[in-house]
Design a protein around this nucleic acid. Structure first.
Lengths: 202, 202
DNA sequence: TTTCCTATGTTTACACTGTCAACATAGGAA
DNA sequence: TTCCTATGTTGACAGTGTAAACATAGGAAA
């Protein structure tokens, strides 16, 4: 039997998994469909992931990395004032989820993935919020960097995120949800960018 | 056979459905479990709802109504300046989802439900965003009410929501997500309220 | 009262799902 | 050359959504 061993099934599962997720949506995603797509029997994913949850979590990390890189690039290539740079990142934030609406669910709603996107830092890449903080931090040298650390023990903590960083994040995330869910109609990219700037005004 | 006909199964499915959803979470929710809970055979829900989706959509509307009423009450009972009243509503917004985290998924992520929570108005109760707009509108008499209408045809529309209303909504929704997903630790209700006020400062 | 219709329930069946255990083999380590 | 293990396959199982065929309670009509 030829190609009994696949070679690099794990990565193929991840790549094809992202595609399947985009095509079918989170609800209709299934392990067996994914296995079939990779031309492999329905149980073989279990050699690489202990669980469906574990697979989706890994896919989430892939998407998370893309998202973080997109934000980082936008921030690094932006010019102008601090506010200009934050706005550039905000645009990228919106674009990212607008062109892949299912990623919004994936990153912020999958029960196991919420830790990745929002807070706890079990894997080295860090959460999008942490990336946001650490990237935006240099724009605000006046603050003590210690202020931005997300505490290890959530049970005994004071609110530590300064409003100057928290508020843009809340704002742009809320706007993204409204846009992705089509609560706000936008005519074209111009008016979208105007809307983003309008919202990111402090 | 006694009680062959149930009496009011439809409402019981909705009530028990909300409970099941809270207990098991959105992922593990199943029609058959719900039927068993209602002491009824697994196919009987189909006499009242054409679909699992349709049932969840109906449950969503129940939750939506609770949510809208909670916001409305908070706004009506609030005193003080316009900003004070918006902040009161913001607190209620956060409390609601913090005490029932699964409702956040239900209202804003269920594919079919996004229309309910966010924008399109197929049912009379209106979306939470519309409720928000129509309730908050009186606080801003200086604006033309026409500005706040969500347009019927999304394809040919200008951005029409004034920033004074859009920004608080984005803000409080983004904050809610961060809090529900535990990205931001809060010690107690006092510091939570401080955080909300901090974020809702314009 | 009797008849019969329909709303609402049940039963059975099917394809599909996640998951596991038993098995098979490719390809490197000893 | 031998054998081990990582990686694949096959078959089974319980649970899922859904549809079709069937049953009856309880009111409408006679």
């Amino acid at each position: 039997m030829k190609n009994y061993h696949h070679g690099n099934l794990k990565q193929k599962l991840l790549d094809e998994g992202v595609r399947l997720l985009v095509e079918e949506g989170y609800e209709k995603f299934s392990l067996r469909k994914l296995a079939k797509r990779c031309s492999v029997s329905h149980a073989s994913p279990y050699r690489h992931f202990s669980d469906k949850n574990e697979l989706i979590l890994a896919i989430g990390r892939e998407v998370q990395n893309k998202f973080n890189n997109a934000l980082k690039n936008a921030l690094e290539n932006a010019e102008g004032s601090q506010l200009d740079r934050i706005r550039a990142m905000g645009r990228e934030y919106v674009y990212f989820f607008l062109s892949n609406p299912d990623f919004l669910e994936l990153l912020f709603l999958t029960p196991e993935l919420q830790d990745i996107s929002c807070g706890k830092h079990e894997h080295p890449e860090g959460s999008s919020f942490e990336t946001y903080l650490s990237e935006v931090l240099p724009l605000f040298e006046k603050y003590d960097p210690g202020l931005f650390r997300i505490p290890q023990d959530p049970s005994d903590q004071e609110v530590q995120i300064p409003g100057e960083l928290l508020r843009p994040w809340c704002m742009i995330h809320g706007l993204t949800v409204l846009l992705v869910k089509k609560a706000l109609p936008v005519r074209d990219k111009e008016s979208l960018d105007i809307l983003i700037d309008q919202v990111l005004t402090f």
